[in-house]
């Protein structure tokens, strides 16, 4: 039971810290959205804060900070590459000249 107690102490402190951080970052996300920084700066800031929040959840709540399995990290890396590519696809489409010619016409 000693190891369980150690686990409890080690984790519960981190959980409280992440909880406070997530609440503060949510307030920051809303506060930042009320300002117009121009261009796509607002989007970048909102996504950056969401990335930090997501990383905190994955690292502490999902215990990735304490995981040492190489296979799990390979799985996460492959998943991240595929997901990133998936999100790049629409940007590649927007840069494609035939698609650009069609842009803004689907509502007509």
């Amino acid at each position: 039971m000693e190891s369980a107690e150690r686990t409890t102490h080690k984790h519960s402190g981190a959980y409280v810290g992440v909880f406070v951080s997530l609440v503060v970052l949510t307030i920051v996300t809303v506060a930042v959205s009320t300002f117009d920084f121009g261009g796509s700066t607002n989007v970048v800031i909102a996504l950056a804060i969401a990335a930090v929040k997501g990383s905190l959840v994955a690292a502490i709540f999902m215990h990735l900070k304490w995981e040492s399995s190489r296979q799990l990290w390979w799985l996460i890396l492959c998943c991240a590459i595929f997901a990133f590519t998936l999100l790049l696809l629409p940007l590649f489409s927007v840069m494609d000249p035939p698609f650009q010619a069609q842009m803004g016409t689907w509502g007509d």
Binding site: C79, L87, L89, P90, L91, V94, M103, G107
Partner: peptide, 22 residues
Amino acid sequence: ASEVMLFGAFFSSYILLKFSAP
């Protein structure tokens, strides 16, 4: 990991439709 791809497809669609809207 499969769920990331499922939601990723919807976020990808969102970006494409937003950028290509008139």
